[in-house]
Design a protein around this nucleic acid. Structure first.
Length: 498
RNA sequence: GGGCCUCUAGCUCAGUUGGUUAGAGCAACGGACUUUUAAUCCGUGGGUCGUCGGUUCGAUCCCGACGGGGCCUACCA
């Protein structure tokens, strides 16, 4: 402890004045009693007292004595009577009063000297209302619950975005909405799990460290295992392991966990993000679309009590009803004003792209179709919409369409213009899957850094027989964005910052 | 990856067309005050103006590099 003091003296030039002063107060408190007591005689919470006395008259005494603690948010000290607003973790506040005749001169002076904004303060006293009608604790004693060394930012201006992200713990203390978003996220997770439980899905956890990354097209983060002396990848998707689970007879399986992709970060992308994937044996892309709609609608209903969700900007995101399913090729043809099919020559697609001035540099026909679709159709989608039947060459893990040639049974769900989820009738034929992987390996050899690798063990699993299945993946952070209208860095409590 | 903008006190921000001591509100420190609600009143202290370099008699200000952040664009299931 003395070392600490010496260190802070050595660093004096670097320590801001306010921290210096608070460190001295901490010393004082430790000398008198304890700046960080291990326990306190707490009898109730701020929330409980508020709930118990919702509307007392002005200037009444309840006769009930309580001991409670909270963070000091405002102080109004007069000569012989001090007011202090204490805040619970929930954000609920209550006023405590310390008067000369109740706590005595010494305790009142020590209070004024040693208690700062931001400190955790314990008070014991009677629940009363003040002469202005404010519900208060008339303290008979006070104790420091935890001394704060750094000053809280002032509460009268909004904090800057960067400060909030880098100091989320402060954001949570001072901003109601920050706390609310954490609660919403927790409740959404609960709701998703409830919906899965009702449908007899099992939640599992599959590897995050993988020797071969698969299940999506993205650049991975690389790391190294000392024990195995081998290169490992942080997973970009759990897909190939969840399918192994289905092969093993876990017929309804889901996982909610983190994926990592070594790509750009912006308002809708984070290098690490929470992903939900679910697989349903003897289902297909229709049944999994039904499930996806139910998951999201239940979440809105459970968390907000409505499927008409109000967003940050005041607009309403209408998640109600049955969501339309539109064909990618048909909706593109209609919007572009000419017939586009899987057979349309790539040269014609290039011409259309040139005409509307979008640049595409990719060898795949399907890539052109998807880019054109995004240009012509995506922005016009109002309600949540399943876009179905994708080009085959950009969907290596998806089964060919049962009746249409050149497309696969895949959908993307768009909500508010963002890709929210994707679903497949899963490709379960090991021979076709192997051929698709080999195409990907060819692309990789041609320099596409996001092409998939050939996973022999996964193919072996398929060779043991995977039942026909529907599967889907949904970004949890994006779901929170759809339900709140916030950016991804606000839905993740501690987003990566440099 | 390309372009543009930005960084001043613990926090939110002014400001300096290059000139002696860089300001405000809240916060802090000293004082007054027994019913305040962002309490009030009097007084005081607090800054490597992101970092390093250049131009200049003189740089927080102009220029360059670097670092942090933002926006646009490109890329991205």
């Amino acid at each position: 402890m003395t070392d600490e003091v010496n260190n802070s003296a050595e660093n004096e030039v670097d320590v801001p004045e306010q921290i210096e002063i608070r460190l001295a107060k901490r010393e004082r408190l430790n000398a008198l009693n304890d700046a960080y007591p291990v326990s306190l005689p707490i009898t109730t919470t701020i929330d409980a007292v508020r709930a118990k006395y919702p509307d007392l008259e002005i200037d009444v005494a309840t006769g009930e004595t309580v001991g409670l603690a909270g963070r000091v948010m405002f102080q109004r000290n007069t000569g012989k009577l001090c007011f202090v607003s204490l805040q619970a973790g929930s954000g609920e506040r209550i006023q405590a009063m310390l008067s000369l005749d109740k706590v005595g001169e010494e305790q009142l002076e020590l209070y004024k000297e040693l208690v700062d904004l931001g400190d955790h303060l314990f008070v014991e006293g009677e629940v009363i209302t003040s002469k202005r009608g404010e519900l208060s604790i008339m303290a008979t004693t006070w104790k420091m619950a935890a001394k704060t060394i750094r000053p809280l930012p002032n509460l009268h201006n909004d904090l800057g975005e960067e400060f909030r992200v880098r100091h989320r713990y402060i954001d949570l203390i001072v901003r109601d909405r920050a706390r609310e978003v954490v609660q919403i996220r927790s409740k959404v997770m609960q709701s998703l799990r409830n919906t899965f439980n009702e449908d007899n899905f099992l939640e599992v956890e599959t590897p995050m460290l993988q020797t071969i990354h698969g299940g999506a097209s993205a650049r991975p983060f690389k790391t190294h295992s000392n024990a195995f002396d081998t290169e490992l990848f942080l997973r970009i998707a759990p897909e190939l392991f969840l399918k192994r689970a289905v092969v093993g007879g876990i017929d309804r399986v889901y996982e909610i966990n983190r994926n990592f992709r070594n790509e750009g970060a912006d308002r809708t992308h984070s290098p690490e993000f929470a992903m939900l994937e679910a697989y349903q044996a003897y289902g297909d892309y229709n049944s999994i679309a039904d499930l996806t709609q139910k998951l999201i609608q239940n979440a809105a209903q459970d968390v907000f009590g409505t499927q008409l969700v109000e967003l940050e900007d005041g607009s309403i995101n209408d998640l109600s009803g049955t969501w339309p399913r539109i064909s990618m090729f048909e909706s593109l043809s209609e919007a572009a004003g000419e017939e586009i099919t899987p057979e349309t020559p790539i040269e014609k697609l290039k011409k259309i792209a040139e005409k509307v001035e979008i640049e595409i540099d990719h060898p795949l026909h399907g890539k052109y179709v998807e880019e054109l679709w995004e240009h012509f159709v995506k922005g016009g989608l109002e309600k949540p919409t399943f876009v179905i039947d994708f080009p085959v060459d950009t969907s290596p893990l998806t089964r060919d369409h049962r009746s249409k040639s050149g497309v696969v049974e895949k959908w993307d769900l768009y909500i508010k213009g963002y890709e929210q989820a994707t679903g497949y009738s899963e490709l379960v034929d090991p021979v076709i899957q192997r051929a698709r992987f080999i195409e990907q390996v060819t692309l990789a050899a041609a320099g596409d850094p996001e092409a998939m690798k050939l996973d022999e063990d996964f193919l072996k699993a398929l060779e043991f027989g995977m039942p026909p299945s529907g599967g889907m993946g949904m970004g949890i952070d994006r779901l929170l964005m759809s339900l709140t209208g916030l950016g991804i860095r606000e839905t993740i409590m501690f987003p990566l910052v440099k």
